[in-house]
Design a protein around this nucleic acid. Structure first.
Lengths: 160, 160
DNA sequence: GTACTTTTACTCGGATACCGTCTGTCCGAGTAATTATGG
DNA sequence: CCATAATTACTCGGACAGACGGTATCCGAGTAAAAGTAC
């Protein structure tokens, strides 16, 4: 039971894309290189973010990716959902029902109810925080220099 | 990202063991048979519950398992911890630190903090509910007959 | 110079392989009650 | 009848095989800008 690595990668990719000026895009390979992750695999994740309508893609030469929403409108939960899908953390295998030999209409699972409640508590934390909140925490004084380097890299690497 | 099936199995095994009279035990194979799960694999899970001090084992002929704690004192979280271990749901791969080229002492991850907060919210729900609470929900009128059958099976199957 | 073709560098989606973890099986060792054996 | 040995049915822990999902790679197809070509 472990979260996929793609969620972390996606969050920071979105923060990178947020440094782009209007109409500019970043190629997928450049992003993955900056993040230090597998290029071909990360492009699959980028496509998931496109499907989830968080980022937009531009095909062709001078193509790449850019934000579709403002990061203030992208909750961490949205990124999680885009990468992990909407399956629940827990799914009952129906042991209780089998033991009690319940009919179809009587099927129930007290454990499922509890797990659902727990999962909702978990999700609600992820829904309260936006990627903008995280980006804001990076504005601390001690990161200023490195942030500037990153922005310079974006300016240098972006196209159009 | 999915919870192991062993958690559900363990919870209902504990509820079964709770039907035992003092000093009686249930063999591992009988339990797994009642739950309808793989016998050899489930015995591994039972040993995890023993290690976690939730149940006690009696070796030798006429051996088996019985509760070590009262189910009022066993939180669903304890069962989860016994089966899944204490690893966190999320662990940072340090992408942010790598991008900002932070020194060892400056390492941080805002995402980790958020994920930890979310995980704590999730855990707290599982800590609030005991196995006794779940067993109590099974006392509903419509289950009375089947519960009695289960108890009869326990009486028939237990040893000592 | 303009219209057309070719090249280039991207995204897109599927097929496929790798690898770690969860699930499941098997075996030898330890344990304790029962049964068998010998005096 | 009593003490000892063998049998039996469990737990214990490790080794190992299989299934599955996350990770990673590769390829052909589509797309659009740029470069090249013909008139």
């Amino acid at each position: 039971m472990h979260m996929k690595t793609g969620v972390e990668q996606s969050v920071y990719a979105i923060i990178l894309l947020n440094m782009l000026p209007e109409k500019a895009v970043l190629p997928g390979e450049a992003i993955s290189q900056q993040l230090g992750v597998s290029a071909t695999y990360f492009q699959k994740l980028l496509r998931k973010l496109v499907s989830a309508d968080l980022i937009a893609s531009v095909p062709g030469i001078k193509g790449g990716f850019k934000l579709k929403k403002r990061i203030e409108e992208i909750r961490v939960y949205d990124v999680y959902l885009a990468i992990e899908g909407q399956q629940t953390l827990y799914s009952s295998s129906g042991i209780l029902c089998d033991m009690l030999e319940l009919r179809e209409e009587d099927r129930c699972c007290f454990l499922s109810d509890l797990m659902e409640e727990a999962e909702n508590a978990w999700k609600s934390v992820l829904k309260q925080k936006t990627v903008a909140d995280l980006a804001g925490e990076m504005q601390a004084e001690r990161f200023a220099g490195k942030l500037k380097s990153l922005q310079a890299w974006v300016q240098k690497t972006m196209v159009v």
